[in-house]
Computed example of a mutant assay.
Amino acid sequence: MLFALMQLIGGIILSIGWIPQIVQILKTRSVSDLSLKAYLLMLLGIGLMEAYAVNLAADGNGLAFLITNTLSLAVVSTVVLLILRYRSPRFPKK
């Protein structure tokens, strides 16, 4: 029980850690210093962990992991969508 609570709190803290990045993007509408490739790799890794978390939760274990991983998936997905929305076009219009 203690370790599940620690995992839940730690996962929430890690997920909340992305929120300042999202706020910064929304304020500045700039993503020029962010790497889309890096965020896509993170998204892929979290997506694979999400499949594992669903499997664990289906067996009656790992509900805290499923909750925090789903939160991370949502937050990192938001960053990726913002990068796609605010990135500079590759070939600017003339």
Rank of each mutant, 00 (worst) to 15 (best):
17 G>K: 05
5 L>D: 13
79 V>E: 01
44 L>H: 01
85 R>K: 15
67 I>D: 01
76 V>P: 03
30 S>M: 06
57 A>G: 01
23 V>P: 00
34 L>N: 03
54 V>I: 15
24 Q>L: 13
62 G>R: 04
41 L>S: 13
29 R>C: 07
12 I>G: 11
73 L>Y: 07
29 R>W: 00
9 I>W: 08
3 F>P: 00
28 T>F: 01
5 L>H: 08
42 M>E: 12
56 L>D: 01
89 P>F: 12
64 A>P: 09
72 S>K: 08
61 N>M: 11
64 A>M: 09
28 T>W: 03
40 L>A: 06
22 I>E: 03
49 M>Y: 14
86 Y>G: 02
3 F>W: 06
3 F>K: 13
21 Q>T: 12
70 T>S: 15
76 V>T: 11
77 S>C: 10
57 A>D: 03
41 L>E: 09
51 A>V: 15
64 A>Q: 06
42 M>S: 12
3 F>Y: 03
68 T>C: 04
20 P>I: 05
87 R>D: 02
39 Y>N: 12
33 D>P: 00
88 S>M: 09
39 Y>A: 02
68 T>R: 02
11 G>P: 02
80 V>M: 02
16 I>W: 14
80 V>E: 04
11 G>V: 04
39 Y>D: 01
18 W>P: 00
39 Y>G: 01
37 K>L: 12
16 I>Y: 15
89 P>N: 14
58 A>K: 00
61 N>Q: 11
52 Y>I: 07
65 F>S: 03
86 Y>H: 10
13 I>Y: 09
41 L>M: 12
19 I>R: 00
83 I>H: 06
59 D>N: 12
35 S>N: 11
8 L>D: 05
28 T>M: 08
53 A>I: 04
17 G>Q: 06
42 M>V: 13
62 G>D: 07
77 S>P: 00
35 S>R: 02
86 Y>R: 06
7 Q>K: 14
26 L>F: 10
45 G>Y: 05
74 A>T: 09
74 A>F: 13
18 W>F: 14
76 V>I: 15
39 Y>V: 05
79 V>Q: 03
4 A>M: 10
64 A>I: 00
50 E>L: 15
92 P>L: 08
10 G>T: 13
78 T>F: 06
9 I>G: 06
62 G>K: 06
40 L>R: 13
52 Y>T: 04
33 D>M: 07
42 M>A: 11
24 Q>A: 14
5 L>C: 04
1 M>F: 09
24 Q>W: 10
38 A>V: 13
78 T>I: 06
90 R>L: 14
25 I>Q: 07
20 P>W: 02
61 N>A: 10
43 L>N: 15
70 T>G: 15
66 L>A: 14
44 L>V: 11
57 A>M: 07
4 A>V: 04
